[in-house]
Structure formats: structure tokens, C-alpha cells
């Protein structure tokens, strides 16, 4: 087991009170697994990954614990986490294009980064060059400034950079959202390749685009308004989802070949609740076509069949 999260809750402090961004998250990521994390904006997917990397104010750690390779991560202590960041757990940020220092050449920048982690640049150089080959970047880029690279090349450079120390867990935060279809595909496939080559041992791939997850992820976790809604293997989520939210979400995606003149697709009416003073019970209740009295209580995240978890009174209670 690579990553285990137990009952993690993280809030945001604001003047008006706490924003309940993450509530009671329990999940795990196996070695060799790419876990896709999907959900609407504001559902807490980025908060979840942010808290695994750098939990800083106004984020506030509430409860729960996080284990990586069987060791507890001190996520509430930003200082202590330093020894784990980049080494054990690493992130490709959403705006990877802007992650490189514009006035430093790429090679020296990597050297500084490695030195700060007490790794010798020269030792790591052959591996670095090998990985540049993997992502089809010429070795000359190490002597270039970031502006000399195109957006897609920068993105790949950052991917190489974040995985240079073979982290146990790699977090990819919406890395395909700003890209064109062709680059989306290229970047997603590279992530799979990285895992195959052992550049990282497991990955969390955050995106709002479920169809990309279908292409590369082993399992998919769907979040809604700070809670986990459903987790299962990719095939199960796409072809036989159980949670009403997952079902509606998948039904709203336009598939190639479907035309407006022939078939009207439908979105999900309503909006996610505000997480400042969130409603009690299931947070999807207002928008859920199946809601009933029981939904005023928070549904537990239970395993209804092997490796298929769901938080819903309608579906979960049958198990």
C-alpha cells in the first residue's frame, strides 16, 4: 500500500467561520496505481492534494492521519514535511508552464533543487538525461532558459523535474486542463509511461474530465462538496456507477457522434452547496433525484462490493 488516508478533515479559516473543504476522507492508493480524482470545482480535490504536500494557512488541519509506505506523514507540520516533499511525495502543479524560474537556465535550476535535497547533481545526471529521452526532449534544454521552450515542452520538463527522485506518490493537479487534445493525450500517456519506468510508484491524477481518466486511470474516486462520493475501478465507475451523482455526471458528457439536433443531453440541475455552514446530511441531497428522509444523515462511505466504495443511503444500504 502506497498511500493511506484515514478520516482526514481539513477546513479553511475565514472571517465568517470555517469552510468545511474536506470531511472525513478515507481512501488508499496502491503501489503501481493511478488513481483518478474527479469532481466539480470546489469539491475539495485540490485541497486534498494540497494538504498532502503543503498544508498552510488559511488551511487548517482538523483530524485524521496520512500514511505513506506505512510511515505516518506529519502533514500538520509544514517544516517536518520538508524532508518528505519532492523525495517521497511530489506534485506537478496546475500551471506547470509557470513553474520554472524564468531567469535561470534549466540545468542549474535543477542542480540547486537537488543540492537543497542533498543529492549530487552529477550522480543524477545520467538518469536525468535518460528521462529527457523518455519525454522526447533534447539534452540541450538543460542549457536553455524556460522561454526558449514551448508550453508543451515546459510541461514535460516539469514532469521530469518533479519525478527526479522517484517519489512514492506523484500528484498531477489538473495538468491536462489547459492543454489541447493532442497534448492532453501526450501528457497523460507520459504519466503512464513514468509509472511503468519506475519514475514514481503511484499517482493521483486530478481532473474534472472523466473521459481522460477512463483512458489512463486504474481507479477513479469521485468527490462531491468535500466528501468522497464513490470509489471503484475505472471500468466500474464508467460503465456501472452506483452513486446518483456519478451517474448524472457521466450522462452529462457529450460523446463524439452525439448531436444536439438528434439527442439533447442534460446537465445536473442546481449547484453544489456552499461549504461555509454546509447543509447537514448528504451534501448532494438538494440536487439528487433519489433523495429521501434518510439523506438528512451523512451517509457512510462503505464497501458495497469488492473495491467498490460508495456514500449513499439509497445504494449503499442494499449491501
Amino acid at each position: 500500500m502506497s498511500l493511506q488516508i484515514e478520516n482526514l478533515s481539513v477546513y479553511y479559516q475565514t472571517l465568517k467561520g470555517d469552510v468545511h473543504a474536506l470531511e472525513d476522507i478515507t481512501l488508499d492508493v496502491k503501489l503501481g496505481e493511478i488513481m483518478g480524482l474527479a469532481g466539480e470545482s470546489g469539491c475539495g480535490k485540490t485541497t486534498l492534494c494540497q494538504s498532502l504536500i503543503y498544508l498552510n494557512p488559511p488551511m487548517k488541519y482538523m483530524t485524521g492521519r496520512v500514511m505513506l509506505n506505512g510511515n505516518e506523514l506529519p502533514i500538520w507540520d509544514a517544516e517536518k514535511m520538508n524532508q518528505h516533499r519532492f523525495r517521497d511525495i511530489s506534485i506537478i502543479p496546475q500551471y506547470a508552464m509557470n513553474a520554472l524560474n524564468p531567469i535561470r537556465k534549466i540545468g542549474p535550476m535543477i542542480r540547486d533543487l537537488l543540492t537543497s535535497k542533498k543529492v549530487d547533481y552529477k550522480d543524477r545526471l545520467p538518469e536525468l538525461k535518460h528521462r529527457l529521452d523518455v519525454v522526447n526532449l533534447p539534452h540541450d534544454v538543460l542549457g536553455m532558459y524556460p522561454f526558449e521552450l514551448s508550453g508543451g515542452m515546459k510541461q514535460r520538463m516539469v514532469m521530469v523535474l518533479s519525478t527526479l527522485l522517484d517519489p512514492t506518490l506523484l500528484i498531477a493537479d489538473e495538468i491536462t486542463s489547459a492543454l489541447d487534445v493532442a497534448s492532453q493525450k501526450a501528457v497523460s500517456e507520459l504519466l503512464v509511461k513514468f509509472l511503468d519506468e519506475g519514475c514514481c510508484k503511484s499517482a493521483i491524477f486530478i481532473t474534472h474530465d472523466i473521459s481522460i481518466l477512463y483512458q489512463i486511470a486504474n481507479t477513479i474516486t469521485v468527490m462531491y462538496a468535500g466528501y468522497l462520493a464513490e470509489k471503484a475501478s475505472t471500468e466500474t465507475i464508467i460503465h456501472s456507477p452506483r452513486h446518483p451523482y456519478t451517474k448524472l455526471l457521466i450522462a452529462s458528457l457529450p460523446k463524439i457522434g452525439v448531436k444536439y439536433s438528434e439527442k439533447h443531453l442534460k446537465g445536473i440541475p442546481g449547484h453544489p452547496p456552499l461549504l461555509l455552514n454546509p447543509p447537514i446530511g448528504c451534501r448532494f441531497r438538494d440536487r439528487c433525484p433519489l433523495a429521501f428522509e434518510k439523506c438528512t444523515e451523512v451517509p457512510p462511505f462503505v464497501e458495497i462490493e469488492k473495491d467498490h466504495f460508495i456514500a449513499c443511503w439509497r445504494e449503499g444500504s442494499h449491501a
Partner: peptide, 25 residues
């Protein structure tokens, strides 16, 4: 053809590989 094959779909998985761009602007 390349664009259409690269669209992530829910009914089939990607087949062909994309050629990576290694040129600057």
C-alpha cells in the same frame, strides 16, 4: 484525423501515439 483520435472518449481507449512537439515557438 489525429485530433479526432486524440479526443478522450468514454466508449473506447486511445490507440495511436501522439508525436511529441520538440520545437520552440
Amino acid at each position: 484525423q489525429m485530433l479526432i483520435s486524440a479526443v478522450p472518449r468514454l466508449d473506447q481507449k486511445w490507440a495511436t501515439k501522439v508525436k511529441l512537439d520538440s520545437e520552440a515557438a
